[in-house]
């Protein structure tokens, strides 16, 4: 049974239809790379999964629970949306770290708020009964995550004192802190200088080995081929081609995929 199932997502902004009937599924531990030229709808798709946009049509299921079903007319409450969002994490192209908080605080802020709320409501946060213990848990986890992204020594720095690559690694740790089922990356290296992309991609590679389920929207074709279990090529709001890296990148069938990839090969040679 798939961990994530996306069915028939349609999304328009005004008269422009950006997503035209997108469906795919993802197994636990799989990495999906979404490639395609800009304007093809990749980012919008990610934003729909994270409930930053609402599709007009479609269904999203995680772990067999239906998070969104546009066929049901009842409006989703804010609380429900917040709960749904916790199934997903999102790493932004422009990092969006909170500038006034230290690195460690960036990572612990949301878990702390969540712990406070859950302990108040149900008396339980990840098996811990009071806030003080929860805090210890959260801090320990944050330290572990920082170690994972290789920034332990930067935990008391402010984002403005970090390089772009370091900021993006903190953003990854921040997204992981809530332990999402699916971690999404929206062109995580596009805002970085070329020499800094490597460190971020390595972190993502590392996550694959620790069995995280991920969706990566990227322009790094080589990286996609290397890390992804599955690749989707999007064009004009539809999935033009879908398959393993060998199929999509190594032996593309769709002329648009071919055209897109040949443009990339031109640059990389």
């Amino acid at each position: 049974m798939s961990l994530l199932k996306v069915e028939n997502i349609k999304k328009s902004f005004g008269k422009t239809q950006v997503l035209k009937d997108i469906s795919f599924s993802l197994e636990k531990g799989e990495v999906l790379a979404i490639i395609g030229s800009s304007g093809s709808g990749k980012t919008t798709l990610l934003r729909c999964l994270n409930f930053l946009e609402y599709p007009q049509h479609g269904k999203i299921t995680v772990n067999q629970s239906v998070l969104l079903d546009c066929a049901r007319k009842s409006k989703i409450s804010d609380a429900e949306i917040r709960k749904n969002r916790l199934h997903f994490g999102l790493v932004f192209q422009s990092f969006n770290l909170f500038p006034q908080y230290k690195v460690i605080e960036n990572i612990t802020l949301a878990p702390k708020l969540l712990a406070k709320e859950q302990i108040k409501n149900s008396g339980d946060f990840c098996g811990v009964k009071n806030y003080k213990e929860a805090l210890e848990l959260i801090n320990a986890n944050a330290e572990k995550l920082l170690q994972k992204v290789g920034l332990s020594e930067k935990k008391d720095s402010y984002p403005c004192n970090l390089s772009g690559g370091q900021q993006q690694r903190v953003a990854i740790a921040r997204a992981l802190a809530l332990n999402p089922d699916v971690l999404c990356f929206d062109e995580p290296t596009s805002a970085l200088d070329p020499e800094l992309t490597g460190e971020v991609l390595n972190v993502i590679r590392g996550l694959k080995s620790s069995d995280s389920t991920m969706i990566v929207v990227t322009h790094e074709i080589e990286f996609a081929r290397d890390v992804a279990d599955k690749i989707i090529f999007m064009a004009d709001g539809v999935i033009a081609e879908e398959g393993t890296p060998e199929q999509v990148i190594g032996n593309p069938q769709n002329p648009r995929t071919k055209a897109f990839l040949s443009r990339f090969n031109q640059y990389s040679k």
Binding site: N50, K83, R85, L90, N96, L114
Partner: peptide, 19 residues
Amino acid sequence: GQYEAGQVLGMKKTQIFFK
């Protein structure tokens, strides 16, 4: 992006504003 970062981290509107 600051609001969206808060949103995807499951924060409430008031939490995003104040925190």
